[in-house]
């Protein structure tokens, strides 16, 4: 039974495009645990580490040579804003894994690592089949540092903390481990349509 807040009217705009508990914004708020790092593309690498511990690096040049996709997706941040119809360009994560010949046998989860030590865990299947990209352009321009540039993970069907900014590593895992926010009580999966904000939701 919901508690009614007497005198609260609200906007009464229930938007079917926005998951429960979210509201629409046209801005693009920035939420990060620390300062924005400035990373160039010259020494940029993305390291894919297999379950055997062996690591393969993808350089910026190699990333740019992979097939790109242009996608228009909705973003949902756990802090309750949603931004609809955002335009991105990126390389599908499946292409990145394919490019380094990653062995996916027995791999169930992936820990994404970022410059600065941020991590977030995702099931491998959520990174494949056209659901996730290493994105490097937003709205037709190079991705700004504040939004995760030069490249970030983009996994729009999950809350935005899963779309790791300044991504520099994908660690393949047989078993799930908790990432940075997940260790602080945020949901291990984070589906906005099921409102999985915090552990136990």
């Amino acid at each position: 039974m919901a508690v009614v807040s007497r005198g609260f009217g609200g906007r009464r705009q229930v938007d079917p495009q926005v998951p429960p508990g979210q509201y629409r914004t046209d801005d693009f708020p920035v939420l990060t645990a620390g300062p924005t790092p400035l990373i160039g593309t010259v020494n940029w690498t993305l390291d894919v580490t297999g379950v055997d511990g062996a690591s393969h690096s993808v350089s910026w040049q190699q990333l740019m040579a992979l097939p790109v996709e242009d996608v228009t997706v909705d973003l949902h941040c756990v802090t309750k804003w949603s931004k609809l119809g955002t335009r991105w360009r990126g390389v599908p994560v499946a292409e990145v894994l394919g490019a380094v010949g990653a062995d996916l046998e027995g791999v169930e989860y992936v820990m994404a690592h970022s410059h600065g030590g941020y991590t977030t865990n995702l099931p491998l299947r959520d990174l494949l089949h056209g659901q996730a990209w290493v994105a490097f352009e937003f709205d037709g321009s190079a991705l700004a540092a504040a939004h995760g540039g030069p490249a970030r993970l983009l996994v729009p069907h999950l809350y935005l903390w899963k779309s790791a900014k300044w991504v520099n590593g994908l660690e393949l895992l047989r078993e799930d481990r908790l990432g940075f926010w997940e260790n602080f009580g945020y949901h291990p999966y984070g589906d906005p349509w099921r409102e999985q904000r915090y552990a136990g939701d």
């Binding site: 914004t25 708020p29 990060t32 645990a33 620390g34 300062p35 600065g116």
Partner: peptide, 20 residues
């Protein structure tokens, strides 16, 4: 950071505009 504080010593909390 310009003043010499290490990036990993700085913790931030931002609030965006609360919707249009």
């Amino acid at each position: 950071q310009e003043r010499g504080h290490a990036a990993d010593a700085i913790r931030t909390e931002r609030f965006g505009p609360t919707g249009s």
